[in-house]
Design a protein around this nucleic acid. Structure first.
Lengths: 205, 205
DNA sequence: CGCGACCCTGGACGACTGTCAAGGAATTCC
DNA sequence: GGAATTCCTTGACAGTCGTCCAGGGTCGCG
């Protein structure tokens, strides 16, 4: 019925999905480089070995492509951070690991985080992105809350903030650090580490 | 020499500047409505009584127009907030006024604040906006710090955070509240009020 | 081998963009 | 009054955009 292969049956149903992933990853590189507003489908295609027409073979339109990209971003980002934090076994160590993890991802994935803030802003205007952005926001909030909960357990004290409040505070600190880091400030990464470490205990007063 | 009237001498040198302001205000309305990426000069002109060509008579290019708009935004925004907060004469009253002021501007100027977050994200990609955005960021940080300083004076205790750290925290809270408010959450404004009131004392532990 | 189904190319489409220049209209000045 | 300056409109320009499609490849199965 549909001319577009929305569901591939042939090979383990994977060849199609694999290429989607490949294209989405290339798109992520381009998007992280230029930002949503300045990235065209042709530019994305230039960063692959294919021509621009192929994008409409694997994705209905630009929105579906970007949506798919964003979902991939989440999977990669959250999971990695949890590993860093789950190893701590003292309150001090957890606070340090928290700051360290944020500082590390800021240093290494700055461009991807920039894209995240860009897309989150776009979602304030473009309802098509709202759902995916909200989903990632929830995942990030849960990620932060795991840290807060772990800290509570190790100190034996209960947090005095809600999960969303805690997330908002960390997000504000991270966003500011990102802006400074991209602006060339060498102190941004270190400040983020210190600020995150400083912030955590304040959620228990 | 120059064909563009960069400096009007004739009438009190104001007719020109007045029209710039008029056009910039109309542009602000359109920008707040559609966001930076989706706003064209023709669309801006449609929200005025003039045709699209006039914009290039009063502004060199799109960047100068947007830059000019953003500067107007700052002037209007910061000044108003300071009035709300300067009236408080007790620590409790200041914390309440702080939350109240933020909640009020969230409710009344949500679209303008959305534009601010949009442009700040764009500045992460487009260096042309960096200077103006940084300037506004500094003004907002100073605005927050005036509240913190006032609170310190009224309580007789010294803040335990830096100005930029304090701003980052408030900014995170406000940004989250804005997103929820625009998403239709009725509790967003009240939560912002409560969260801001809650946050202030935490900067002194 | 031959025939489908799948994959990809490259060009074309109409719409939209920022920019600019030519010229008409309005205003101001002498 | 006329002339000069300022203001604004209109139409065009060279691009770019997302989208679509006709047509070649390419691959695997019968």
């Amino acid at each position: 019925m549909t001319s577009s292969p929305a569901h591939a049956r042939r090979s383990p149903a994977d060849k199609f999905e694999d290429r989607r992933r490949e294209l989405a990853d290339a798109a992520l590189v381009t998007l992280a480089d230029l930002g949503y507003a300045r990235t065209s489908l042709r530019t994305i295609a230039e960063n692959t070995s294919f021509s621009h027409g192929v994008l409409h073979y694997y994705f209905r339109d630009k929105v579906e492509l970007i949506t798919y990209c964003v979902q991939r971003y989440k999977a990669a980002c959250v999971q990695r951070y949890d590993g860093v934090v789950s190893a701590a076994d003292t309150a001090e160590g957890l606070a340090t690991a928290c700051g360290e993890g944020l500082a590390a991802t800021l240093r290494e994935d700055a461009l991807l985080h920039r894209l995240w803030y860009d897309l989150r802003s776009q979602a304030l205007f473009e309802p098509a992105f709202r759902a995916e952005v909200a989903e990632i926001d929830d995942a990030l909030q849960a990620m932060i809350w795991r840290v807060v909960s772990g800290y509570a357990e190790l100190t034996g004290r209960a947090p005095t903030v809600s999960p969303s409040f805690a997330y908002a505070l960390f997000d504000g600190v991270f966003g500011q650090a990102l802006a400074r880091h991209l602006d060339g400030s060498d102190a941004a990464v270190d400040d983020l580490r210190a600020n995150a470490r400083d912030l955590l205990p304040r959620l228990f007063t």
